[in-house]
Amino acid sequence: MTDAPHLIEVRNLVKRFPIRGGLFSRSVKAVHAVSDVSFHIARGETLSLVGESGCGKSTVGKCLAQLIPLTEGRITLEGKNIAGLGRAEMQPVRKRMNVVFQDPFSSLNPRMTVEELIAEPLRSHRMARTRTERRTRVGDLLEKVGLPRETMVRMPHQFSGGQRQRICIARALASEPDIIICDEAVSALDVSVQAQIINLLMDLQKDLGLALLFISHDLAVVEHMSDRIAVMYLGRIMEIADRDAIFRHPRHPYTKALLSAVPLPDPSAKRDRVVLTGDVPSPIDPPSGCFFRTRCPMATDRCASDVPALRDMGGGQMSACHFAEEV
């Protein structure tokens, strides 16, 4: 680690959603969406969060973007704490990060024109004061994401899914952010369009020096996009490492199982599959010790009693498994 603070640093992030019940809406239980998650993102880097549905990867993204308040923990942007800031203090932070969501249909207000949509961050950050200035900026942004300038007068429903996602990306870029959080940004798209958007994101990243937090369940896409990858399960990071390390020699049984479960578009490739039995436990009542032990083929008694901490396996590869060496 260098002395200069990372662009984003997340320390011991915890997010619980209380479940209210009983006579006076007391919180009786809580969904443990994210437990003790720490990671950092460097400038211009892509960190991916992977995991199955309900693993808390989207919640991490939303906490980072301050769309929901976090329960505990610290998030810093270039060393300055940004968790729990008030609205006014938050505004300059919002300028530096934006989000692209999964569904390009519902994340664009159907009653606004493309110009209004992309100008929204420009307005709220007071970046282009006059109408003409805004128009020029919006046109530039549209061209940057591969859409003709003239399309700014149209409404979202006149575009296809892929084009809408381009509009979402243009909007996210409008405030000239340092980091974009892509929450399953390509998951809802068809294969051929998905390739277009992935290429676009990678090009933009190279040109603008953007950092990406890429949240996805698709390991092949993640492999393609990322510099580093964090594998999450039930709200905890199981393994975090460079892309090559994760894919070449995973040090956590969950990562291994996840990788072997991906169907390969190649009928001749026959693999030994680690088929996990059973389902993900409930995040309301997670198991003791290691959260993965109920489905882990390697689990022992120790896994039920001790929570495994993330340990450095060399080369920055961190694994939260007591038996990481044996994986």
Binding site: V191, A195, A220, E223, R243, F247, L264, P265, D266
Partner: peptide, 10 residues
Amino acid sequence: NAVPKLGSSL
């Protein structure tokens, strides 16, 4: 060709 394949970018 458009599908990212596991292991191909490594």
